[in-house]
Simulated scan of single mutants.
Amino acid sequence: MRSRSLVVPAVLAGLLAGSVADPASAHEQVSTPSAAVVGAAPASRVTAGWTLVARYGFDGGRPTPIADESGKGHTLRLVTRNGGTVSAVRHGIGHALRFPGKCLTGRRCPHAALQSPSAPNLNPGTRPISYGAKVLLSPSQTSKGQNVVQKGYSATSSQYKLQVDGAAGRASCVLVGARPGIKLITSTVSVADGTWHTVECRRTARALTVLVDGAVRGNRAIQPGLSVANDRPLSIGGKGAYSDNDQFQGTLDDVWVRVG
Score class of each variant (00 low, 15 high):
residue 169 G to S: 04
residue 169 G to V: 02
residue 211 L to H: 07
residue 180 P to C: 05
residue 235 S to R: 08
residue 224 P to R: 13
residue 150 Q to H: 04
residue 186 T to V: 15
residue 220 R to G: 14
residue 251 T to E: 03
residue 213 D to T: 10
residue 260 G to A: 12
residue 221 A to R: 15
residue 231 D to G: 09
residue 153 Y to W: 08
residue 149 V to D: 10
residue 231 D to W: 00
residue 252 L to T: 02
residue 256 W to N: 01
residue 257 V to N: 00
residue 242 Y to N: 09
residue 179 R to S: 15
residue 176 V to T: 10
residue 247 Q to T: 06
residue 195 T to I: 10
residue 188 T to R: 15
residue 167 A to Q: 11
residue 184 L to M: 13
residue 153 Y to F: 10
residue 194 G to M: 08
residue 234 L to H: 08
residue 174 V to I: 12
residue 201 C to N: 09
residue 232 R to S: 09
residue 150 Q to A: 14
residue 216 V to L: 06
residue 249 Q to D: 09
residue 259 V to L: 08
residue 169 G to I: 06
residue 236 I to E: 10
residue 197 H to P: 06
residue 223 Q to Y: 08
residue 150 Q to I: 14
residue 205 A to D: 15
residue 229 A to W: 02
residue 218 G to S: 10
residue 236 I to F: 10
residue 154 S to M: 03
residue 185 I to C: 04
residue 151 K to C: 02
residue 215 A to T: 08
residue 229 A to N: 12
residue 156 T to S: 15
residue 241 A to W: 03
residue 173 C to L: 03
residue 258 R to S: 11
residue 228 V to T: 13
residue 162 L to D: 13
residue 247 Q to Y: 05
residue 158 S to N: 06
residue 257 V to P: 02
residue 155 A to Q: 08
residue 174 V to T: 09
residue 148 V to W: 13
residue 213 D to E: 12
residue 159 Q to I: 05
residue 240 G to Q: 04
residue 194 G to K: 09
residue 181 G to K: 13
residue 250 G to Y: 07
residue 204 T to A: 07
residue 173 C to P: 04
residue 208 L to A: 07
residue 184 L to D: 12
residue 196 W to E: 04
residue 243 S to C: 00
residue 231 D to V: 02
residue 241 A to Q: 03
residue 243 S to A: 09
residue 255 V to K: 01
residue 173 C to V: 05
residue 199 V to Y: 09
residue 173 C to D: 03
residue 186 T to Q: 14
residue 175 L to C: 03
residue 248 F to P: 04
residue 210 V to S: 05
residue 165 D to W: 07
residue 209 T to A: 15
residue 185 I to P: 07
residue 217 R to V: 07
residue 180 P to Q: 05
residue 243 S to G: 05
residue 177 G to R: 01
residue 234 L to Q: 07
residue 155 A to N: 04
residue 179 R to D: 12
residue 221 A to W: 05
residue 200 E to H: 07
residue 205 A to V: 11
residue 208 L to V: 06
residue 177 G to I: 00
residue 257 V to W: 01
residue 166 G to E: 11
residue 181 G to I: 10
residue 166 G to C: 11
residue 211 L to W: 07
residue 215 A to V: 05
residue 164 V to N: 01
residue 207 A to K: 11
residue 168 A to H: 01
residue 153 Y to L: 03
residue 154 S to I: 02
residue 169 G to R: 02
residue 255 V to P: 04
residue 223 Q to F: 09
residue 187 S to G: 15
